[in-house]
Amino acid sequence: MLQDQLREIRTQLRMAMNGITSTSMREKGINYKLNFGVPLPEIKQIAATHEPGSELAAALWKEDIREFKILASMLQPADDFPFDQAKQWVKEIPYLEIAEQCSRNLFCRLPYVDNLLLGLIFNVEDEYARTVAYLIWAELFKEGKTVVAPVRAAFIVECMRSIVWPDFGATWKEKQAAVKAMKFYGRQSADHARQMLSGFDEFPEFMETPEGQEIYNDLKFEFEYYS
């Protein structure tokens, strides 16, 4: 049964494949064993034709195939995904797109999301751990959700650490994810917006750099637009 499902998915992907997209991704350094280049809307359509299940999702995830990993994030039931398995998936994320899809389709919906966030944001060993934490926060805040006080405090402090502290060595993708999460947090209320912007007051040297001015002005414009 499982092999039949996987065979059917392969057939669906082959019929929807886009060689131009997969070639473009490969030229940008995104190398999978197999990449059909299928656009996300079509991957969602394929996911809708299959019953979600942990066995199928696990089988999809273990393959080095772009679309399989994205489908795994769509077909894994959130209420049947152990904490240790979530951490293992984060360790195995190969590219930013997969981090985004897992955060949007699965991680933000997990019943233990607060504990997961605290585990990820203090994890500096796994390449995508902190980036995934910010992406999850962005999804939660975008949906108007709140997080418990310790998780909110960690979010505020760690955003500054990722963006402002040059010695911390945050990656570009981590900084971009942090800014994205800050935008959605600040959109929730005027108090949240002030909270985000006031955090930069303690770092005048960073604010004098082109990067600092760009990030601050980007956030300020965002909050004024949505106020």
Score class of each variant (00 low, 15 high):
Gln3Trp: 10
Asp4Ser: 04
Arg10Ser: 00
Arg10Gly: 00
Arg10Pro: 01
Thr11Ile: 07
Ala16Asp: 13
Thr21Phe: 02
Ser22Gln: 13
Ser22Met: 15
Ser24Asp: 13
Met25Phe: 09
Met25Cys: 11
Met25Trp: 14
Glu27Ser: 13
Gly29Ile: 13
Ile30Val: 15
Asn31Leu: 10
Asn31Lys: 14
Asn31His: 11
Tyr32Glu: 10
Lys33Ser: 15
Leu34Met: 09
Phe36Asn: 03
Val38Gln: 10
Glu42Ser: 07
Glu42Phe: 03
Ile43Gly: 08
Ile43Lys: 12
Lys44Tyr: 09
Ile46His: 01
Glu51Pro: 08
Glu55Pro: 14
Glu55Gly: 08
Leu56Gly: 15
Ala57Gln: 01
Lys62Phe: 06
Glu67Lys: 07
Lys69Cys: 02
Lys69Pro: 12
Lys69Asn: 08
Met74His: 12
Leu75Gln: 08
Gln76Asn: 15
Pro77Gly: 01
Ala78Lys: 14
Pro82Tyr: 02
Pro82Leu: 00
Asp84Met: 03
Asp84Trp: 04
Ala86Phe: 01
Gln88Asp: 13
Trp89His: 09
Val90Leu: 08
Lys91Gln: 05
Pro94Ser: 09
Glu97Pro: 06
Ile98Tyr: 10
Ile98Phe: 04
Ile98Asn: 11
Glu100Tyr: 10
Arg104Tyr: 13
Asp114Ser: 05
Asp114Leu: 04
Asn115Asp: 15
Gly119Cys: 10
Asn123Met: 00
Glu125Lys: 09
Glu127Met: 11
Tyr128Ser: 05
Arg130Ile: 03
Thr131Tyr: 06
Thr131Val: 05
Val132Cys: 07
Val132Asp: 07
Trp137Ala: 01
Ala138Tyr: 04
Ala138Phe: 01
Glu139Trp: 01
Leu140Glu: 04
Thr146Ala: 08
Val147Ser: 11
Ala149Thr: 14
Ala149Phe: 14
Phe155Asp: 02
Glu158Arg: 03
Met160Gln: 15
Ser162Arg: 12
Ser162Ala: 12
Trp165Ala: 04
Trp165Gly: 03
Pro166Tyr: 12
Pro166Trp: 08
Pro166Arg: 09
Asp167Arg: 03
Phe168Gly: 02
Gly169Asn: 02
Lys173Gln: 09
Lys175Asp: 14
Val179Ile: 12
Ala181Trp: 03
Met182Cys: 07
Met182Gly: 09
Gly186Phe: 10
Gln188Asn: 08
His192Cys: 13
Arg194His: 14
Arg194Cys: 14
Gln195Lys: 13
Gln195Trp: 05
Met196Ala: 07
Gly199Phe: 05
Asp201Glu: 11
Glu202Thr: 09
Pro204Arg: 00
Glu205Lys: 13
Phe206Val: 12
Phe206Asn: 01
Glu208Pro: 13
Glu211Pro: 05
Glu211Tyr: 05
Glu211Phe: 12
Glu214Tyr: 11
Ile215Leu: 01
Tyr216Lys: 00
Asp218Pro: 15
Phe221Ile: 15
Tyr226His: 15
